[in-house]
Structures are given as structure tokens and as C-alpha cells.
Design a protein around this nucleic acid. Structure first.
Ligand SMILES: [Zn+2]
Ligand SMILES: [Zn+2]
Ligand SMILES: [Zn+2]
Ligand SMILES: [Zn+2]
Lengths: 130, 130
DNA sequence: CCAGCGTTTGACAACGGTTATCACGACTCC
DNA sequence: GGAGTCGTGATAACCGTTGTCAAACGCTGG
């Protein structure tokens, strides 16, 4: 059903190399830069399809832009992202998982979902100073 | 520094009445509907200034739209929002506050911030069925 | 290997929420 | 009341994202 085209594999290979969360437009720029001509719309479509399949994680910046990242673990997890350089650590939070479920149930809510993202300044960036 | 104009008080009064998170455009519609003529740009500006002053909370929907709400408590807190009707409960989470700080520190990150939002179906909506 | 056909692509236009512009009006202070 | 300041609002611009649709492509069965 899903065909493997030159463009689709270019995107997945690029995502395998990139460590941090990147926007669709950044990824498009990178692909163009490395000679892999590809349409912007195709990048968006591919990322969306990968996200739907759970192959990449999506998170939204404060101003609504979507960032994508190919994470190590496919199971549910959260992120600790450096606000300066974008370095990302995948977080496993059993504590908050149960907390979220309990709080939701305590107020009579069902089918609880949660969004939990951590932002900070990583050690390397903190060392550099302002 | 901040003047109290007819438009600004109209927005704050409306926010005092509205229980749930609403978008800037919804609030603009409501103001227009109740005869309070006001420009859309002014609604955006006012909401932004209120948000900067910590008088309203902002949260982003999955597709990047900003929603605003005048919350009871001005201190830091989180939200449990019904995905059907928008009913909102303010959540106090000492557990997750310390968890977030610890996890951040454990990875050498400083100045940790966190985004934590809970979504579910409230008891009333669950009773109504699909 | 090739024809046929459904899928994917990509340039471009359109969309939707938000922000910038800037002339105008309203308020303040003297 | 006049100068200076700040807020307003219609409109245009912005920017990330999605829709359009003809052409290109990848797969498969023959
Ligand atoms: Zn992840
Ligand atoms: Zn979780
Ligand atoms: Zn709140
Ligand atoms: Zn918190």
C-alpha cells in the first residue's frame, strides 16, 4: 500500500541522521542542500504519514510550529529538550503516567491523555554562557 | 502604563463569565454578538497583554490554535480539559513538579520548565454517549 | 520486459490563525 | 485647549501548513 520512493527514503534516512527535533522546512532545506531535490509538500506529507505510523514523534513549539524527530524507542515516552541547541533526551516517566491517570479519574474523567514536555538548558549550552 | 479602555474591560469581563478555554476568534465573535463592537486585532493584543501579565492562561490545541482562559488561581498550575465540551479543571501537581525538576537535573539540564496538560472525557459527556 | 494503472510528486494556489501597519481617535497632563 | 502619548481597527502582510491536479513514477501481472 505504501510505496518506497526516492523522496520517502531520503526523508527517513535524513531523520535517522538528525538527532534533534527539526521543523518540516528545516528538513526540506537540508534535503535540498545535500542535492536531494524534493518538494516541500512532499516533505510535509511524508512526515505526516510517518507520524501517523508512529515512526516519528511530533511536538509543537510555543508558536505552533511542528517539530519532528525519529526517536529511539517507539513506545510511549516524553522529551527533555534544550531550549538553546535542541539536544533531546527521551524520558521515561512511570511516575507521571500513574499520576495523570489518577488525577483524571479523581475528577470523573475517562480516556485520559496527557502532554508532558520538559524544556531546559543542557550542560554544554550552560557552560558556553550567554 | 496600561489604560483601561472600553475594549479592554469588555474582554476581561467576558473572560470572567466564560468557563472554558476559548480562541481569540471565538471571543471576538462573542463580543460582537453582544453588541460590543471591537476589532479582531484588539482582541489579540488584549489577550496577549493579559497573558503576559499572567492574568489568563494560554494553551495550544493540537493544530496550533491558541486558547485562552481566566483561571481561578494565578499561581502555577495545570489543566484537565474535556475533549468534548471543553470543561476545565485546574490541577495542582506537586508530584509532577518535583518529578520534572529531578528528571531535568539528572540529565544535567538547568532552568527546567515543563508543559503538562491532561485531556479526557468528562463524566457528563461520557453519559451522553457518542 | 513491458504495458497498464493506481500512487506519488511538486509547483502553485489557497487557507487559517496571527501579527504588522498606520491613519485616526481618545485620553492625559500641562 | 493643545501637544504629546497611547489604544484602536481596517487592512495587508506573514508564515506554517494543506489542497489541487497534471505529470511522473513504482509496482505488478502478463
Ligand atoms: Zn520521542
Ligand atoms: Zn506519558
Ligand atoms: Zn489555568
Ligand atoms: Zn507544573
Amino acid at each position: 500500500m505504501q510505496r518506497m520512493t526516492r523522496q520517502r527514503s531520503a526523508v527517513t534516512e535524513l531523520l535517522a541522521d538528525v538527532e534533534d527535533f527539526r521543523s518540516a522546512q528545516q528538513l526540506h532545506e537540508l534535503l535540498r542542500g545535500q542535492g536531494n531535490g524534493i518538494g516541500l509538500a512532499t516533505v510535509y506529507r511524508t512526515l505526516q504519514s510517518l507520524a501517523d505510523g508512529g515512526e516519528v514523534d511530533v511536538l509543537r513549539t510555543g508558536d505552533g510550529e511542528a517539530l519532528y524527530r525519529r526517536c529511539e524507542r517507539r513506545e510511549h515516552h516524553h522529551h527533555l529538550v534544550c531550549r538553546r541547541c535542541g539536544a533531546t533526551v527521551e524520558i521515561d516517566g512511570p511516575t507521571v503516567e500513574t499520576w495523570a491517570a489518577q488525577v483524571g479519574a479523581a475528577h470523573g474523567f475517562t480516556e485520559i491523555e496527557h502532554t508532558i514536555e520538559l524544556t531546559g538548558t543542557c550542560a554544554r549550552c550552560a557552560a558556553e554562557g550567554p
